[in-house]
Structures are given as structure tokens and as C-alpha cells.
Design a protein around this nucleic acid. Structure first.
Length: 284
DNA sequence: ACCCGTGTTCGCTG
DNA sequence: TCAGCGAACACGGG
């Protein structure tokens, strides 16, 4: 799943499917122990069974599900989708989809499945009162959709590192929710060379970048909203992005240059060498 | 067989 | 002391 737009869509789906519903039964995949708190897969199932789903919030790429427990004490459910996680809904009578790592049977005849082939995701019980006390959540930077992006604050963070701006944007303490796709997409939108050092951006460039990030994420939410999220690499899925995974295709803006792929911090970066000219700034 | 992958953490290094 | 870097996690698809 994984960037802010897909997680936002997962949050909306979970609200639509399960808000107000009671979890009647929980089953977990014994081979998926690493998703749960170490050694506590059974404890997870015990904590969630019988709870009513009160609300769902999202911060960056993290899902925070508030559960009302019959025992009175509210329960927090923290879900991170890792690289390949998804929440889907099926009829309770349907067979479990492939890679179902957790199954929550609801009181309306449906079952929610958490799917995650690569097991990079997280599904854990946390104190409901203090999601911010979960270290991974407390360390997050501002959420670009909920809090907006303050260009001054972003500029300060970019100036404090020697990393390339593309790499800095993947740091969740800078902005919560930007991932590998939207880092490339927003730098293309802002016409900034991804190899530039964060600190080399002018004030004006940071303002343009801030707007491009928000635009790129909102576009992602709008174009991908729906009950099933398809990832670019899955068969039959259209690529809705302008440069991501489009190496060798003509640039959709200038049409004169082809999209290039480079590797930064072990991740692919896609950009147009003509539109995203680096002459004004030194590369990291 | 080999390479690639919308993410994150850990351990080493200078 | 710590920013930055590469390996590692794990599995499927081309």
C-alpha cells in the first residue's frame, strides 16, 4: 500500500465498513508473527475480539483504530501497511484471500482481512490514550493533509541536512506520509532536480515544492479512492503517475526529453532532466 | 537464476 | 555524538 493517499483510502474504507460494528472473532496467521508485537500474536487476537470499532484516524502512513472494549478500557490498534499491506472486506463465508495475516469477523456478516505478502507491516495493540507515545508515531513530522505544509519549517528541515532533497523527503520526521512515488511526483511538479541538496533550494523553490507535495498527495487520494487499491506493479493496473515508473517515456510536460531513472538511497527516482534542471544548485 | 519492488530499522563508520 | 549509508527483513512477479 503504502503512501499517504493509499493509507487515507484505507482509513475511509475501514470507517465505512466497520465503524460501529463489533468484532466477533479474530484469527491470525501463525507465519506472520513479525507483524504483531514479538511473541504476542495471541494477545492481539484476545485484545481485539469483542471490541466495537469506534473510530479510525490516520497520521502519515499510520492507521490508528480506536476500539471500545466490553471490559471498559479503550483499546488502541496501530496498523502500518509496510510495503505490501492492504485492508479488504469479504463475506464471512468467502475463503480467506491469499496472504491474509489477520481476519476480523464483524457482526454484519463481513470479514475484514489484513493482507500482507511481504510481512513488512505492523498490527499492534497500543495504549489508546497515547498513540503519540508509540515511538514510530510520536517521531512523525507534520501530516501534509491534516496540518498543511509550513514552507518555513520545511525549508529549515531541508537546510539542516546534506542529503539530496529527494532522500530528505522520504524522512517521515520531515513530513509524514511522503513516500517514494510522491517524492518523485512532487519534485517533478515543482521542477526541482531530485539530486539537489535540500539546503540549496531557494525560499521560492521550497514554497513551490510545498504546494506540489500537497497537490500530488491530493491527486493520489482523488484518483485512487475506492474499495480496492491496485498498485502500479500489479497486472492490469493503470499507472496514474506522471513520472513514477515511466523510465524512457517522453516527459509529459516538455515532450522533448525522456524520463530518467536513477537510484538514490537504494530507491528509484524518476525525473525529467530537462524540466528538472540542476544548473542552479549543487547536487548532493 | 537474477533483478526489482508505493517501507522501515539496525548497526557500522567517519 | 550523530548524520548518513548500506544491509536486512520477506515474498512474488517479470
Amino acid at each position: 500500500v503504502p503512501e499517504l493517499p493509499e493509507v487515507e483510502i484505507a482509513a475511509r474504507n475501514l470507517r465505512r465498513w466497520a465503524e460501529g460494528r463489533r468484532v466477533e472473532r479474530v484469527r491470525t496467521d501463525p507465519r506472520a508473527a513479525r507483524i504483531f508485537r514479538p511473541g504476542d500474536r495471541a494477545g492481539f487476537a484476545r485484545a481485539v475480539a469483542g471490541c466495537r470499532l469506534a473510530s479510525v484516524e490516520r497520521r502519515g502512513k499510520h492507521l490508528l483504530v480506536h476500539l471500545a472494549s466490553p471490559k471498559g478500557k479503550p483499546v488502541g490498534l496501530w496498523s502500518h501497511l509496510g510495503m505490501t499491506g492492504k485492508w479488504v472486506r469479504r463475506d464471512a463465508s468467502d475463503p480467506a484471500p491469499a496472504h491474509s495475516r489477520a481476519r476480523l469477523d464483524l457482526d454484519d456478516g463481513h470479514a475484514l482481512h489484513y493482507l500482507d505478502p511481504r510481512l513488512f507491516g505492523r498490527l499492534r495493540i497500543v495504549p489508546d490514550a497515547g498513540f503519540a507515545r508509540v515511538p514510530e508515531i510520536g517521531a512523525l513530522g507534520p501530516d501534509p493533509i491534516h496540518e498543511g505544509i509550513d514552507p518555513g519549517r520545511l525549508a529549515a528541515r531541508l537546510a539542516a541536512t546534506r542529503r539530496a532533497v529527494k532522500v530528505a523527503l522520504l524522512d517521515q520526521s520531515v513530513l509524514a506520509g511522503v513516500g517514494n512515488i510522491h517524492a518523485s511526483e512532487s519534485l517533478f511538479g515543482a521542477r526541482i532536480d531530485p539530486r539537489r541538496r535540500g539546503g540549496s533550494l531557494t525560499e521560492r523553490e521550497v514554497r513551490v515544492l510545498a504546494r506540489a507535495i500537497a497537490t500530488s498527495l491530493r491527486r493520489g487520494i482523488d484518483t485512487q479512492d475506492g474499495p480496492e487499491i491496485a498498485y502500479v506493479e500489479e497486472p492490469g493496473a493503470e499507472n496514474p503517475f506522471r513520472v513514477y515508473a515511466r523510465e524512457g517515456e517522453p516527459c509529459p510536460r516538455c515532450r522533448k526529453e525522456r524520463i530518467r531513472r536513477i537510484v538514490q538511497a537504494q530507491r528509484s527516482t524518476f525525473f525529467c532532466p530537462r524540466c528538472q534542471d540542476d544548473r542552479r544548485g549543487r547536487r548532493a
